[in-house]
Design a protein around this nucleic acid. Sequence first.
RNA 1: GCCCCCAUCGUCUAGUGGACCAGGACGCAGCCCUUUCAAGGCUACGACCGGGGUUCGAAUCCCCGUGGGGGCACCA
Length: 492
Amino acid sequence: MKPARTRIAPSPTGRFHLGGARTALFDYLLARKTGGQFILRFEDTDRKRFVPGSEEEIIRSLDWLGITPDESPVHGGKYGPYRQTERREIYQRYAGILVEKGSAYPCFCTPERLDQMRREQEARKVERVRYDGLCRRLDPEEAARRVAAGERHVIRFKMPYEGTTTAHDHLRGDIVTENKYLDDYVLLKSDGLPTYHLSAMADDHDMEITHVIRTAEWLPTFPLHVQIIRAFGWEEPVWIHPSIFLKPSGKGKMSKRDDAAAIKDGYSIFVDDLQGLGYIPEGVLNWMALMGWGVAEDDVMTLDEMIARFSIDNLTPSPAGINFQKLDHFNGTHIRLLATEDLARRLKPYLTGAGLAVDNDTLLKVTPLIRERLVTLDDCIPFAGFFFKDGVEPSPEELVAKGLDAQQSADIAHKAYDILASLPTLSHQVAEPPMREFVERSGLSANQVFGILRVAVTGQKVSPPLFESMEVIGREKVLERLQRAVELLKKM
RNA sequence: GCCCCCAUCGUCUAGUGGACCAGGACGCAGCCCUUUCAAGGCUACGACCGGGGUUCGAAUCCCCGUGGGGGCACCA
């Protein structure tokens, strides 16, 4: 396959969400797969909706995911500028060409007139509300004069009133639309900036984009876009329209309200939130890729594996409901795949962020103990926080073993103390055998005995394996904590 | 209302006319392992939206319903 040039063309009007990220992923995979380029271009022609900071958020999110663009406003490239407001003259020139060719025309109708026109059509219950063609019927020379005189106007595309347009989507085949259901869409606004219809087609052409991957919300104007390209006489890219993401129930588009609910549960549809929630790029990427990309088996993949296996032929056209439980699964899976040093390095900020004093030696020893218990990175706080505290405060109630009372539990703790105190070190190889013997002799269950020790030493009922944990904590502290537990139990 | 798209287990999906009494993954349930919690292993449950065609044969092709989604801006 020839090197593909793909692009993601977000508008900086809000936060960067999963849908945009998945499109970016597919773009990235196709570009890498074919040895081409992945481009980021900002479609910022809607100045009214511009949100400061959103460009930065998009770039930050792509970086974090590890799918950094080859060309963009910040990374540069030979096809720039990559921000549409900086390409204003280009669109005006292209709009002029279309007018000259007779495929577009200036329109002087005011918003008020258009509004009134629509209301009348609605009242008449016309099949399709569309521009009535008032300015389309203007004499071109008169129109040109009015434009030259500086009269406020837009440029509209001259859509044929009859016939059909056939557009081809790689996933869906030919899509045939009757032109009468289309409209004389505005290409250039009265502020001189283009609408998406003009700017995206022009830029994709100028930037030599070979494959346009965009979501299915563009399908209704797909025939328009194809017509614009044909009016210019340009070559069409390969069009790929995956479906949008649905909310977890599979019913309805993912919305801000759903996101508010998701955040409460520790999830978010915004990529920039995911790191803070403990997700790793590998997990997020793997999860996103599988929504809209059909993989028969062996669905755990790193980015490199995805590149190796990716094909636009395996993309699916049906809508996908997002499933955060599956995100958790892939996140945990990829955490377990990480090398110890790598995982430790990623864990550290969460621990220090929780106010814990982390030293690297201890962290390196702790990491293998908690690795398969982590779903998200921030899970390390409840699982391993006690390793980095001077003392623990076990609740007396939790120190009491099931089926025993406080005095019996104190007795067990005391005997355990004596055994451990007699040992030269508390490496788990040294400490575990005598404790097992003790369990045998006591007639109690390992569960009961080790349960008391666990709470005494870690301060919690759930922890990494007991003897490995004691080894990391160290003989001195372990004995100290056991003694303290005996005291607490005796006071009950 | 009109137009467009989609349709396999609850969810993500494999399946491109016979290899399918439909495979995998998540979740769920049970069992094994086990000092807690996990991880891991095994097993179970679980779907071709409905109706017509085409064909010797249809999850796969066509039509009609139904359901779901998207779009109808000087937004993208």
